[in-house]
């Protein structure tokens, strides 16, 4: 009997200890990420001298993901307009589809879809690349040469993401709305002229700047979480894999959570 009680005690102790360890790690990681963002903004003064690296990262994180962005945006827009259009057509309200499309894409889906794609495409690559550098002592080598890893590695990646994510968000909105136009023309009986006329009438400046603000915030979240996970990687290839996985999952969760709060801030009656 005493043994059973002791085993339970040990299990409970182990459970609390593991939860506590994880919480401590999360607190440490959050602090590290915030300091990393702060240091990156301090290093922004070197952005001009690092322009070649920034442009290279823009190519890696932006241009290379354009094909995936195009497919997701086009078909995302088509699915969205098809679902809404088929229902609205029953009530003779298919004219609303263009308004719905521009609103949804501008306010939410443009930045959200692009953030999801760039998390998988570029965020994972950043975490893996920096993580590999960490476990193969390349980061230590930089420090030994008195080269600040934040200036050399992190700042160009965050800046490139801050440029490319909003740019690709606009591209996603345009393509998503076009996908809606294709479905509206072929399956809902709207002409392209009518569709774009209604889209044009429904573009609001606030929706545009909130969408762009969101994509800018998402860019900082994705790139900083990915770089921080890479910099904290340890234990060889296994650690790099773990850092990559955690960076993708954490970025997705943070994009959703912060996305809600930004929406709530601008459309929930606060602003």
């Amino acid at each position: 009997m005493k043994d059973i009680v002791r085993n339970y005690q040990s299990d409970i102790y182990g459970m609390f200890s593991s939860v506590g360890e994880r919480m401590l790690y999360q607190i440490k990681f959050s602090g590290f990420t915030l300091i990393l963002i702060f240091n990156t903004f301090i290093q922004l003064r070197y952005a001009f001298s690092k322009r070649r690296e920034i442009v290279k990262q823009m190519y890696v994180s932006g241009v290379k993901s354009m094909l995936v962005c195009s497919i997701v945006a086009l078909f995302g827009g088509m699915i969205l307009s098809l679902h809404s259009g088929v229902e609205l057509k029953k009530w003779g309200q298919q004219d609303v589809v263009p308004i719905l499309m521009i609103n949804v894409m501008n306010k939410e889906m443009g930045s959200f879809l692009t953030a999801i794609i760039l998390t998988a495409f570029s965020g994972a690559a950043m975490a893996a690349e920096i993580g590999t550098m960490k476990v193969s002592e390349e980061i230590d080598a930089l420090e030994m040469m008195s080269i600040n890893p934040v200036k050399y590695l992190v700042m160009p990646r965050i800046v490139s993401m801050m440029i490319m994510l909003p740019t690709l968000s606009i591209y996603t909105v345009v393509l998503g709305v076009f996908g809606g136009a294709v479905v509206s023309y072929f399956q809902l009986g709207l002409t392209f002229e009518d569709y774009y006329h209604r889209v044009y009438e429904s573009i609001w400046l606030k929706d545009m700047y909130v969408g762009l603000l969101k994509s800018l915030v998402f860019a900082i979240i994705i790139s900083s979480i990915s770089c921080a996970n890479g910099l904290m990687a340890q234990n060889g290839a296994l650690g790099v894999g773990r850092a990559t996985r955690i960076s993708v999952v954490s970025s997705y969760l943070m994009v959703l959570i912060i996305g809600y709060f930004i929406t709530s801030l601008f459309y929930g009656g606060f602003v």
């Binding site: 002592e137 080598a141 030994m144």
Partner: peptide, 10 residues
Amino acid sequence: FLFQSGALIN
């Protein structure tokens, strides 16, 4: 510092 693996930037 000469690192064990060389630690060259790849």
